[in-house]
Amino acid sequence: MIKIKSPRDLGAGLLFIVIGLGGFYFGRKLNVGISSRMGPGYFPMMLSGLICFFGIIVGARAFLLQGPPIDKPQFRPLFFIIAGMLAFGWLIERTGLAISVAALVIIATLARRAKPNYVEMIALAIGLAIFSVVAFIYGLGQTMPAWWGK
């Protein structure tokens, strides 16, 4: 049986191959043209091919060279940070900057494994919300809704 010696290399190789194949698939309608008149698909196809090629090599090495295992991902930080970002994106045009910032801060503080200090969390949310509105909207004159809606 073939043994996977380096899981990180295997993962990277597979990821590269997927990206390369994605490049081919999503660019399949682009006209490649000829080398003296390169079409919009020429360079992308070249790159996709090369990415697949390197993906295969990196992936193949996983069976030959010893490597460390993939660290187990911790979902808590990843989930709450991304959730906070998406909440900000969803809220910004609906409720304005102040509330979006507060929501982002509150969700982001949950990303820590330790039990959150709720007083500190609320204080930080309010503080950063006020600071953001004052500094970015009034101070730097950026155009975004401070309070409700556009």
Binding site: G84, F88, G89, L104, E120, L128, Q142
Partner: peptide, 26 residues
């Protein structure tokens, strides 16, 4: 623990401020 929410906030404002589009946040 107080620093990273602030960094995150500034990053988001930076991105939204240049584009005024939530798509960039996604």
């Amino acid at each position: 623990r107080m620093l990273y929410p602030a960094i995150l906030v500034f990053c988001m404002i930076g991105i939204y401020g240049t584009s005024s589009s939530y798509v960039q946040i996604i």
